Simulated scan of single mutants.
Amino acid sequence: MSDKTDSEQIDDIIAQLAGWKHETVASLRAAIRAADPDVVEAVKYKKPSKPEGVPFWTHDGDLCFVDVLKNAVRLTFSKGARMPQSDLFNTRLDSKVVRGIDFVEGSTVDRSAIGELVADAVRINAG
């Protein structure tokens, strides 16, 4: 069990990444935190294949999480299927629950657009 806060654990996850993945996750985190000052950071899904866990952001329920894949960084919105349609969503489009955005090397993070999606997710959780 870690003595570190969830935010400190997310700091560590980002610090372990290199290059474009490091930049992408750091940029996504900054966009999420800027969009919702009341967002709560959490680390979930710790397992042997991913002992560091997965960074999550919550506000009255799960908002989104970031998973670092082999060739992408995926931002998944937990209730994305209930959110307004966005051209940013490019994966998990057939899911009845979530929607995701895969960032690959060379992708840029549109912090304003991500912020709008976070605001939509917060509104859905406030229900």
Rank of each mutant, 00 (worst) to 15 (best):
T76W: 01
G80A: 07
K46V: 07
R111C: 05
V68K: 01
A18T: 15
V68I: 12
R82T: 05
G106W: 02
V73A: 07
A35M: 11
Y45R: 11
V118Y: 03
S95D: 13
A34R: 06
A113Y: 05
I10G: 01
L88E: 13
D60R: 10
G106P: 11
D120I: 00
R111V: 08
D3Y: 05
V73K: 00
A35P: 09
S95Q: 13
T108I: 03
Q16G: 11
E41D: 04
N125F: 09
E23P: 02
D38M: 09
H22E: 07
A34Y: 04
K46Q: 15
K79S: 10
L75W: 00
A81W: 09
Q9C: 08
V73N: 05
R82A: 14
Q16N: 07
A34S: 15
E23A: 14
G80M: 02
D60Y: 06
R82L: 08
K21V: 00
D6R: 01
D3K: 06
F56R: 01
P37N: 09
D120C: 06
I10C: 07
G115Q: 10
D38R: 07
L17G: 11
D38N: 12
S86Y: 08
I32A: 05
D62C: 07
K4V: 13
Q85S: 05
Q85W: 03
F77G: 00
M1F: 12
F56I: 02
R123F: 06
A126V: 04
R29E: 04
P48I: 05
D102A: 02
A126T: 11
D3R: 05
S78M: 09
A35N: 09
I101H: 14
A42C: 12
P55N: 14
R29K: 03
V68D: 00
I101L: 15
T58S: 11
A35S: 14
V118R: 04
E8A: 12
A126K: 13
K21W: 00
P84T: 13
D60M: 11
A126Q: 14
D12T: 13
D87N: 08
N125S: 13
S78V: 08
A34C: 10
K47Y: 03
K50N: 15
D6E: 09
L75Q: 02
V122M: 10
A113P: 01
I10S: 02
S95E: 12
F89I: 01
D94M: 03
F77Y: 06
V122G: 13
S107Q: 02
L88Q: 10
F65E: 07
L88V: 00
L117M: 10
D3G: 14
I10K: 02
V43G: 00
V43C: 02
A26G: 13
D87A: 10
F65W: 13
A119N: 11
R82H: 09
N125W: 03
D94W: 04
D94E: 12
F77P: 00
Y45D: 09
P55W: 08
A42G: 13
P55V: 12
E8V: 06
L88T: 00
I13K: 14
I101N: 12
R74D: 02
V54I: 15
A119K: 15
D120Y: 06
S27Q: 08
D12Y: 08
D102P: 01
P84F: 06
I13L: 15
S78N: 06
G80E: 03
V118G: 04
R99L: 09
F65V: 08
S86K: 05
K4S: 15
L75D: 00
